[in-house]
Simulated scan of single mutants.
Amino acid sequence: MAEMFLEKFRSLVPLYLEDEWQKEDGLTDAELDDALGTLPVQLPLVLREFYLALGGCEDLMEAYHYFFDPDELEVEDGYLLFLEDEEEKYVWGFRLDQLEVPDPIVYRRQNARGTWKSEEGTFSEYVLDMFSWVFDELSPELND
């Protein structure tokens, strides 16, 4: 399948970290496949390309929220979990019945209640908006 999101995710390194994207910022296909091990589901294209572009870039993988490393991905409550907040109050995931969609809608679970709510945006929209918010609004000094 053709790359749809890879270059967009790679462009986040120079945009927010003021450095050129380097091979080490991402994972290779072999590294990703090895890390996924026996995950019982296939990743949506967008999440696969996210890891290929940024899976080795801690400054982005741990910016505000924490993206799971590929070997930490979990299937729970009918969702593939990929992100959590610092206090572990929320977790984000994709509905399992939407994993074949190249860029599925993101859902958030409030862990205390166990309730899921749509973020009303796809993974690529959510991630790009989140990084913009983290780096542009929470860290205005980065733009000086």
Rank of each mutant, 00 (worst) to 15 (best):
L45E: 14
P70E: 00
L45Q: 15
P70D: 01
P70L: 01
M1K: 15
R48N: 06
L81N: 07
E24S: 14
E86Q: 11
M1G: 15
E100A: 12
G26V: 08
E49V: 12
L83G: 04
Q22I: 12
V134R: 03
Y51S: 08
D33C: 05
V134H: 09
T38F: 06
F123M: 03
L81I: 15
T38D: 13
L52N: 03
V75P: 07
R10K: 15
Y90F: 15
F135Q: 02
E3L: 15
E49N: 08
F9M: 02
E119V: 01
D129I: 02
L17W: 08
L45H: 12
E31V: 08
D69Y: 13
R109H: 07
E24K: 15
F50M: 01
S132L: 03
E141I: 01
V46Y: 01
A30N: 07
K8D: 12
F67C: 05
F67Y: 14
E72I: 04
G26W: 06
T115G: 04
G55F: 03
P104E: 02
M4E: 15
L45W: 04
E88D: 08
L45N: 09
M4S: 14
P104A: 03
E84C: 11
D85A: 10
F131Q: 05
L96D: 06
L99E: 06
W133P: 00
E141W: 13
E84L: 09
L142D: 09
F50A: 02
N111L: 15
L138P: 02
L83C: 11
R109L: 06
T38G: 10
R113I: 01
E62F: 08
V134E: 08
P40E: 12
L39V: 11
G93Q: 04
A2C: 03
E76P: 01
